[in-house]
Amino acid sequence: MFTPQGPTLRELVVQALSSVERGYDLLAPKFDHTPYRTPAAVLDSVTGTLRRLGPFDSGLDVCCGTGAGLGVLRQVCRERVTGVDFSAGMLTVGRARTPVVPDAPRTHWVRADARALPFGPVFDLAVSFGAFGHFVPRERPGLFAQVHSVLRPGGRFAFPIVAPARPGSRLYWSLLAFDTAMRVRNALWRPRFVMYYRTFRLADVREELVRAGFEVELQALEELGRRADGSPRCRLVVATRPS
């Protein structure tokens, strides 16, 4: 799962026994060498779909980490892009690794909690990749309301969501075991480390987005293939703040 440049087992254990913020501060220098970084195939597929939905002037990457999503935004936004994350370590690494490209949109890095975004309605597009497991279900309505509040009328909030693992499959049992272990860890140890894979269900998420004021559509990310029953392996959720 990990390259030689990735974290050691000891480093992962120390991270897992820390808070979410401290854990990612520790992991930041090696994060891009772990399987936790969003795969390039997903980023490329989302980029292609957003290009067809654009153009956009300004974009926000919610829980940006080291900036994989900002790479998407720089390809589909014309003026400026902003990454927001509460881990100072992730922001520092992302800022240092941002390539200098002539005529690229201005890039800003902001340390803040996504549950209290420090912006007005100034963005045309918001994205997020792989961060929703760090929010327990009761926090999602507030998170979605925050994203809604920073989008201009007609602005879009887009994020990929992978089809759920089939019950009984190896992936199903692996995710169940991970979430169970995390719940046990959080019951016995403080500070808590919130990361769950099985709490982000499409039907619930869609309903919560609508309640936050979004109009929601789904687009299949065809480049990522389809399952045996013909359903997409991955969809892009596109939530629009009505004009």
Score class of each variant (00 low, 15 high):
L117K: 01
P167M: 03
S18R: 10
A96G: 09
A163H: 12
E139S: 10
N186V: 10
V127P: 00
G230F: 08
A40W: 13
L176Y: 14
A212F: 11
A203K: 15
I161E: 10
V72P: 00
V76T: 00
P102K: 03
R152S: 04
A41L: 14
R206H: 15
G71I: 05
A131C: 09
P232L: 04
A212H: 06
R156M: 15
Q219P: 11
L224G: 04
L12A: 03
G94C: 05
S174P: 11
I161D: 05
Q75P: 04
G71C: 08
E217D: 13
G83H: 01
L143Y: 02
R235C: 09
Y172S: 06
F2V: 10
L91T: 00
V237K: 01
R115I: 13
D61I: 09
T47R: 01
F31R: 05
S231Q: 15
A104L: 08
R170S: 15
A203M: 13
M1G: 14
S231D: 13
F135T: 01
V122Y: 05
L218I: 11
P167W: 02
R111D: 05
M195R: 14
Q75V: 07
G54F: 10
R241L: 05
D32I: 08
V210L: 13
V136A: 15
F144Y: 09
R235E: 06
V42C: 05
Q219K: 13
V210H: 13
Q146F: 02
P121D: 11
R152Y: 04
F86H: 11
R138N: 13
T82Y: 06
G23T: 02
P164K: 04
G71Y: 06
P242M: 08
Y24M: 09
R106G: 12
R111E: 12
V216W: 09
W189K: 12
L26S: 07
G59Y: 03
L125W: 05
R227G: 06
R111N: 07
G65H: 01
R78W: 12
F31T: 04
F132I: 12
P35A: 09
L17D: 11
L125R: 04
P55K: 07
R22A: 10
E21L: 09
D32E: 12
E21S: 10
R10E: 14
V20E: 11
S58N: 12
D85N: 09
V237R: 02
L43W: 04
F86W: 11
T240C: 06
S87G: 07
F119C: 02
A16V: 12
F86L: 15
I161Y: 04
G48I: 14
T107Q: 11
R233M: 10
S243I: 13
R52M: 13
R190G: 09
G83L: 00
K30A: 09
Y172I: 06
P118A: 08
F159K: 00
D85I: 05
S19R: 02
F86D: 00
L17I: 11
A28L: 01
M90G: 00
G154P: 01
S87F: 05
V162H: 11
T34D: 04
T49M: 08
V101Y: 10
L143C: 04
S149G: 13
M182A: 11
P167E: 08
V150W: 00
V205D: 05
R80M: 10
T107M: 07
